[in-house]
Design a protein around this nucleic acid. Sequence first.
DNA 1: CCTAATCCCTACAGCCACTGTAGGTTCAAG
DNA 2: CTTGAACCTACAGTGGCTGTAGGGATTAGG
Lengths: 152, 152
Amino acid sequence: MSARLTIGRAARAAGCKVQTIRYYEQIGLLPAPARSEGNQRLYETEDIRRLLFVRRARALGFPLPAIRDLLSLCDEPEQPCEAADAIAKVQLEGVERRIEWLQELRRELERMIEQCRGGSIADCRVIEVLSRQAIRDTADNEVPGRGVSSRL
Amino acid sequence: MSARLTIGRAARAAGCKVQTIRYYEQIGLLPAPARSEGNQRLYETEDIRRLLFVRRARALGFPLPAIRDLLSLCDEPEQPCEAADAIAKVQLEGVERRIEWLQELRRELERMIEQCRGGSIADCRVIEVLSRQAIRDTADNEVPGRGVSSRL
DNA sequence: CCTAATCCCTACAGCCACTGTAGGTTCAAG
DNA sequence: CTTGAACCTACAGTGGCTGTAGGGATTAGG
C-alpha cells in the first residue's frame, strides 16, 4: 500500500506550505511527481521522504544549493561521505559565525537599553548610541550562502 | 566649511555601496540631497550623519521600518524616549530568539558531524540524521521583521 | 586643450526562499 | 446536484540590497 498523498497532505506531513512544495519542484529540487486523471500531483512514499529530507535540512539552516548537493550525494550511496561531511562543516561554521555576531549585537543592545533611564529623546541613550557610536567593522558576519533561512 | 561629499565619498564614509545610498533615498529613508550643476548628488554633513545613523542601526540588525521609526523620533527630541526604547527592546528580543535557535542548530550539527566517522554515504551520519531524525518544531524562530540583515 | 580613467546618472533585473493573489478546475461530502 | 474545500497555473511581492546596461560628468595627466 503506497501513500499517494495529494499536495495538501504532503504539505501537512512536511510542515510546510503547498506553494513551498511546488516551488521546490519548480527549481528542480524535487522531481515532478505523478499526476491524477484530473492533473493533480500525487506523492509516493519516496517523494515524501525526499521532501522531509529537504525540510529537515532547511530546519538546520542549510541553504537550498547545499541541500541539492546533499541530495545528489544520497543518490550515490557507495561514494565516501567526506563531501557530505564537508557541507555540514561549512554549515556549522556559518552558524558559529552568526552566533558570535549576534552575541555582539546582543551586548550592544543590552548596554544601550540599560543605560537608557527614560527621559526625552534628546537624552535617549538608544538614539545617542546610534548617532555617535562607531561600531567596529563587522564585515563577513553572514553565512556563506548568505541571508538566513527564513522561518522553520 | 560644509562637507558636500559626492555619493562615492559618502559611501566610503558610511562603509556601504553607492547603490545602497540611492536605495535608501528611493524608499524615502534618506531625503533627496542637493545636486551639483551636472546633476550629481551632494551630501551635507547633516545628510552624512543621517546615513551613518542608518548604517549603525543596520549593523545592530534593526530592520529598515524600525530605523524609519527611530529617525522620525529623532526629529522630535522633546518627546519621551519610551518609543525608542521599545523599538530597541523588540530588536533585542529578536536577537535573543535567533541566538537560541542558532545554538540549537549548532548542537544538532555538532552531533551530526561528531558521529560521522568516515565511510560511505550509505552509513554517513549526516545524511542519516537528515533522512530519519525528526527535529522538534522550531516555528517562530525568526526575528519579527523576518529575514536577517544581510552583510554589515 | 585633449584624452582617458574614473566617477556619476537612471532604470531595471536578480538574489534567497518563500508567500500571496487571481482566476480557474477538480474532487469529496451531503 | 450542489456546495465548498482543495487543487491547478502564472505571476507579483517580500527585505535589503547588488549588479548591469547604457549613457553623461568630472578630473588628472600629458
